[in-house]
């Protein structure tokens, strides 16, 4: 068994797949297709802020691309 960080809201548990800078990459534990990127509020870690616009969304995706998720898989 792996221990993972969970963010619970809307009666669902979202697994923190990875975190880069303040960006949180979240996936629904029960439905891998239910995914989102949110930002952590430095003053309130329980508050998940929206991505501002498309430019920031693409920036967050490119950060993830560079991180190369496949290298993290054991």
């Amino acid at each position: 068994m792996d221990e993972v960080e969970i963010y619970s809201f809307d009666d669902k548990d979202y697994v923190l797949v990875t975190k880069i800078d303040s960006y949180l990459y979240l996936s629904n534990e029960k439905d891998p297709r239910d995914m989102m990127i949110r930002k952590e509020d430095v003053n309130n870690p329980d508050l998940l802020l929206p991505i501002e616009d498309d430019e920031e969304f693409e920036h967050a995706l490119l950060l993830l691309t560079r991180r190369k998720l496949e290298t993290e898989e054991s």
Partner: peptide, 19 residues
């Protein structure tokens, strides 16, 4: 979104599947 943080043990394959 106001979320509640916690830690949880899950099946080994889950995180790989999500990634």
């Amino acid at each position: 979104i106001h979320a509640k943080q916690s830690r949880k043990k899950v099946d080994n394959s889950l995180k790989g599947q999500l990634k």
